[in-house]
């Protein structure tokens, strides 16, 4: 909710702060499961990063290092698509700890 008065609004509706949706922590939407990263099974294919609808796969120096739970909505697409290594997935969906 924005409590700004009419005179504080821009002339015509426009958002001047690009990408400020970051302030909305959609991680709170997760209800059942969260993805857990198992590095030992990761082939660094980066598909989880590419397929994540919420930009919630953390990549550092070109390598997946885990998840950004502030934004992850827990959809499980990453775990579903993870090819893993030797039949073992690098992402497991585990019950959300309340």
């Amino acid at each position: 909710m924005s409590a700004r008065g009419y005179s504080e609004l821009p002339v015509g509706p426009v958002i001047l702060d690009a990408g400020n949706s970051r302030l909305l922590k959609t991680g709170a939407w997760r209800t059942i499961n969260r993805p857990v990263f198992k590095e030992e099974n990761c082939s660094q294919c980066l598909l989880c990063w590419l397929f994540c609808p919420d930009m919630a796969v953390r990549v550092e120096d070109g390598k997946v290092v885990g998840f950004d739970y502030e934004y992850c909505k827990g959809c499980g697409v990453c775990a579903q698509e993870c090819p893993g290594k030797k039949g073992q997935k690098a992402i497991a969906m585990e019950e959300e700890k309340k």
């Binding site: 400020n20 949706s21 970051r22 302030l23 959609t26 939407w29 997760r30 950004d68 909505k73």
Partner: peptide, 13 residues
């Protein structure tokens, strides 16, 4: 950016 309000698992983003 993250923080958009599309459903979990949505294909659009």
């Amino acid at each position: 950016a993250p923080g958009h309000r599309l459903c979990a698992g949505c294909g659009a983003p």
